[in-house]
Design a protein around this nucleic acid. Structure first.
Length: 908
RNA sequence: GGGCGAUUAACUCAGCGAUAGAGUGCUGACCUUACACGUCAGAAGUCACAGGUUUGAAUCCUGUAUCGCCCACCA
């Protein structure tokens, strides 16, 4: 019949593309200026242009989308700004890899051609990830799409650089920096990741030269190092000033083996006397700590490793070798001279490049730095005083601590892809490999475009600084560069500061902290007031998903297999504040089934709806709680729904989206479908027209409410059903109807309690059926015996529910009914249930059942009695708790007696 | 070396002061006119360990173990 109109199983593929396009086409993702409305704004954490949607993106953007849709339905003027990040080193690496396949390097192409190639690539495939976000259903305003290197954002970068430079906060200086020999660039401190690696600790003998009269001469000092190749650049040996073993030898000299140099022995408190021999080789040019020691003691910096990771001419005969080759050679040579005392296996952490995993080489080089002290202070107090709130607040402490210990930020990178530093030099010679700053006698010029001539000397030989800015510099400006800053615009005025930032904790420092700093610096206001930190998606064993581990679950494949709503549900239901989530493929099956359940319950409602419509009646969406024709189960489900609305709302407000998602699931499946819909069938299949209408009205009201409530989490299926349900009136989309609000008038605690009792009785009866092997088609008789008048009234009022759900043909309710012979029994809520099983009953089975029950009741009674016997309990526990326990005791005793009685009756 | 978090049913996780909950999986029975991507029922846990606070602890405190993250200049 009519059922065939809607397919039995939900097919996401049939509807998703339609809706994804519909929302955009109809302009539903764009804010409509309305001075009466409050704004709610999110700027997307811009994914790298090289990116393809992975689970992290899917999670991050699903969460943002949920909040945006929810706020929109709540009546806010919402805006979610999309865009991509040029992704500096990461992107350049991608293109370099492509070039490598052609056996070319970027240097073969030259800067200009290489950049052309990059832009070409970006044109062709840079929007992939944005298209994937559309598939996810992200309600982004595509008319405002930005790219960190587009004209508008570039203007912001130049303006920011210029302002900070003029303030004296940006400077160029020679410092020890983290150098990636593979990417050929400097990195900031947070771009270095530490990896535990297995290595070796080499103990090397440095023969003493002085101290003849003390008999020390020739006695070797033993130093321990994990990097023997750097010894070629040693300019001292250090001990702790108070280390009594070496007190005498301060200022003496040792012979540096292999390159036959004499170096001095110094004392410095940075040395830990307890580590190794307490003697350390000092290589100021190739180690952070040694660099600082060198500064304190005015030691020379002997550079033996170059920017390419190869040994320099200063390394003598080792020149030209790679770091690794040199290490082997040095060890070999030391062995040959018997200067290697021992080698130990050693586990230590090695700093590696966060983009290519190559071991970082600390090198001294000229770089641009940004002083962040003042800015960090403002960001610090913003979170301290609650202006920028972090959820969950467990991230406050690490965030604040990080801001406290900040060093200047190295913002220059020696790559080509990025915002070129807007600094120009007047150079004398035109072509040279030397940095232009070195060839200029005139002051540098900060300017967005190439100046025609030098302001100082009028020279026309102008060269730009070759470095580009750290990607994170432009990212830090994102919340206002997207709105056109430094130009004042209507958008900037209306939408800055934004409301919320949603991100994973891995870029809290790299990105979030810097946006706050820049926001205060340039706009004088925080860039957002809430920061929602979510977890990281991990595999079943808790490992990060990575291609190399082969444990990646591809969201696009999951969307294809199970539907986008299923993917969104899985991610949301796992998103518990403060915790990473572990997902595996089987989680998706459950979510897919959930979508199917919703699909089918809507089919159910619509079948009856059509019948009614054919008969000329229309469902009403307004439920009047005082309406007399509402049955107990109607009032129950309406009350349960209000609680659901409240909890879902609470979860959204607190950024506990897992709570919202799970609450919805629970309500829809376990309460609406499993109980209410089943009970509504009594009336829907019945002949009483008025009753039929009432039941259907409640069903429609609930389905309508559920669809609105779930829409932010599962937008596709909810839209699809909503459209066919037809309760939306003129609304084109659920986005145009209001989000459900809790109606306290529909909450009824006593009805909830009563229905719970009835449900428990039904379950008990069904358990008997099941355990006594009474097959479902077999009709049974039910006897319900109670003493309490109220209880009897309730049972009578609900007798048709019990009868229907227990599949009983006869039901008898009364006080002190006598137990029919050969019946199975259960006792709960002071109600005795008898089910006559003439010819069906297996007494040994029934004895077993009752005995088990008895055991449980005895256990309960034992516990309760013990509790009540304690004077302290009666004295200290709240009165309510005591009376509750007493009630439990009474009930248990009653139950125990009855059980014993029944058990005695069936003893043979 | 510091900081944070985790440890609950076979698995993935909720709960966070009144003797334990969900989903998946498992067992049994059902094609009951929304759904077998389903229905009904069941089994399954000294809530990591040891102390303490409390009338009462999975829940609060202290310590231990294991795991995971973050920060830090351990040669």
């Amino acid at each position: 019949m009519e059922i065939a109109e809607i397919s039995k199983a939900y097919d996401p593929k049939k509807v998703e593309a339609y809706w994804a396009e519909f929302w955009i086409k109809e302009g539903l993702s764009q804010p409509i200026f309305d001075p009466k409305k409050k704004t709610f704004v999110i700027v997307i954490p811009p994914p790298n242009v090289t990116g393809s949607l992975h689970m992290g993106h899917a999670l991050n953007n699903t969460l943002q989308d949920i909040i945006i849709r929810w706020k929109k339905m709540c009546g806010f003027e919402t805006l979610w700004v999309p865009g991509t990040d040029h992704g500096g080193i990461a992107t350049q690496n991608v293109i370099e890899k492509l070039l490598k396949a052609e056996k070319k390097s970027r240097h073969d192409l030259g800067r200009e051609k290489f950049l052309e190639r990059l832009w070409q690539w970006r044109k062709e495939s840079g929007d992939t990830i944005l298209m994937q976000l559309r598939k996810l259903g992200a309600l982004l305003d595509w008319s405002r799409t930005r790219f960190t290197m587009d004209e508008q954002c570039s203007q912001s970068v130049i303006a920011a650089f210029t302002e900070l430079f003029n303030k004296g906060w940006i400077y160029r200086g020679k410092r020890m920096v983290n150098w990636c020999v593979r990417c050929q660039t400097a990195l900031s401190d947070i771009e270095v990741e530490f990896e535990e690696r297995k290595g070796k600790l080499y103990h090397i003998r440095y023969p003493l030269l002085s101290g003849k009269r003390d008999g020390w001469q020739g006695v070797p000092l033993v130093v321990a190092t994990t990097r023997p190749e750097t010894m070629l650049g040693d300019t001292a040996v250090a001990v702790h000033p108070e280390d009594s073993r070496y007190e005498k030898i301060h200022g003496w000299w040792v012979q540096l083996p292999l390159i036959e140099k004499e170096i001095t022995i110094i004392s410095d408190t940075a040395i830990d006397p307890k580590f190794g021999t307490g003697v350390v080789k000092v290589t100021p040019a190739h180690d952070m700590v040694d660099f600082e020691i060198g500064e304190r003691h005015h030691l020379a910096q002997e550079i033996v490793i170059g920017y390419d990771g190869k040994m320099t001419p200063a390394a003598g005969k080792y020149a030209g070798l790679s770091r690794e080759e040199c290490r082997d050679k040095v060890i070999e040579d030391l062995k040959a001279q018997d200067l290697l005392e021992k080698v130990e296996e050693y586990k230590h952490s090695v700093g590696v490049c966060y983009r290519c995993n190559t071991a970082i080489e600390p090198l001294v080089s000229d770089q641009w730095f940004l002083k962040v002290e003042e800015m960090a202070k403002k960001a610090h107090s913003a979170t301290k005083n609650g202006t920028v709130k972090i959820f969950p607040d467990s991230w406050n402490k690490p965030y604040l601590q990080w801001l406290e210990g900040l060093k200047d930020w190295c913002i220059s990178r020696q790559i080509w892809w990025g915002h070129r530093i807007p600094v120009w030099y007047c150079v004398k010679e035109e072509k040279s490999s030397e940095h232009p700053s070195k060839r200029s006698a005139c002051p540098l010029i900060v300017s967005p475009a190439k100046p025609e001539k030098c302001l100082e000397c009028g020279g026309a030989q102008i060269e730009q600084d070759p470095d580009v800015l750290d990607t994170w510099f432009s990212s830090a400006l994102w919340p206002f560069s997207v709105f056109g800053w430094p130009k004042m615009s209507a958008d900037l005025e209306r939408y800055y500061p934004t409301t919320l930032l949603v991100t994973g904790h891995e870029i809290l420092y790299l990105w979030v902290a810097r946006m706050v700093m820049m926001g205060y610096e340039f706009l004088g206001k925080e860039p957002f007031s809430h920061v929602f930190i979510h977890g990281i998606v991990r595999d079943k064993q808790g490992r990060k998903m990575s291609k190399s581990l082969g444990n990646v679950i591809d969201p696009l494949i999951m969307m294809d297999k199970f539907g986008t709503d299923a993917l969104r549900y899985v991610l949301t239901s796992q998103s518990v504040p403060g915790r990473d989530m572990q997902i595996s493929e089987d989680a998706f099956t459950g979510a897919r089934n959930f979508a199917n359940k919703i699909w089918n319950v809507s089919r159910f409602v619509q079948i009856y709806l059509k019948q009614e419509e054919a008969a000329g009646s229309k469902p009403s969406l307004t439920i009047d709680p005082s309406a007399q024709d509402l049955e107990l189960c109607d009032r129950w489900i309406l009350s349960r729904f209000q609680k659901t609305v409240q909890t879902v709302h609470h979860g959204l407000t607190e950024y506990n989206l897992a709570l919202s998602a799970r609450t919805l699931y629970q309500f829809i499946w376990s309460e609406f479908c499993d109980w209410y819909v089943e009970l509504s069938k009594i009336r829907l299949l019945g002949t009483d027209r008025k009753q039929k209408e009432t039941a259907l009205n409640v069903c429609v009201y609930l389905l309508d409410g559920v669809l609105r409530l779930m829409h932010p989490i599962m937008p596709f299926i909810s839209e699809e059903i909503y459209k066919s349900l037809g309760t939306g009136g003129a609304a084109r989309s659920l986005l145009e109807v209001s989000y459900p609000q809790m109606d306290p008038k529909l909450v009824d605690e006593s009805v909830e309690t009563n229905i719970q009792i009835v449900m428990d009785i039904i379950t008990a009866a069904r358990t008997i059926r099941s355990e006594m092997d009474v097959p479902p088609p077999t009709k049974i008789s039910l006897y319900l015996s109670a003493i309490d008048k109220e209880k009897i009234k309730l049972l009578e009022e609900c007798s048709h529910y019990i009868q229907y759900l227990c599949k009983s043909e006869k039901i008898l309710i009364g006080s002190k009914l006598s137990r029919p012979p050969k019946s199975a029994t259960a006792i709960l809520h002071s109600v005795e249930i008898y089910i006559p099983l003439e010819g069906l009953i297996d007494f040994s089975k029934e004895r077993q059942r009752l005995a088990k029950e008895l055991e449980q009741v005895q256990k309960e009674l034992g516990y309760v009695e013990q509790r009540l016997a304690e004077a302290k309990f009666r004295k200290n526990a709240p009165a309510e708790e005591v009376s509750k326990t007493e009630e439990r005791k009474t009930v248990s005793i009653q139950k125990l007696e009855k059980l014993k009685e029944h058990l005695a009756l069936i003893q043979e």
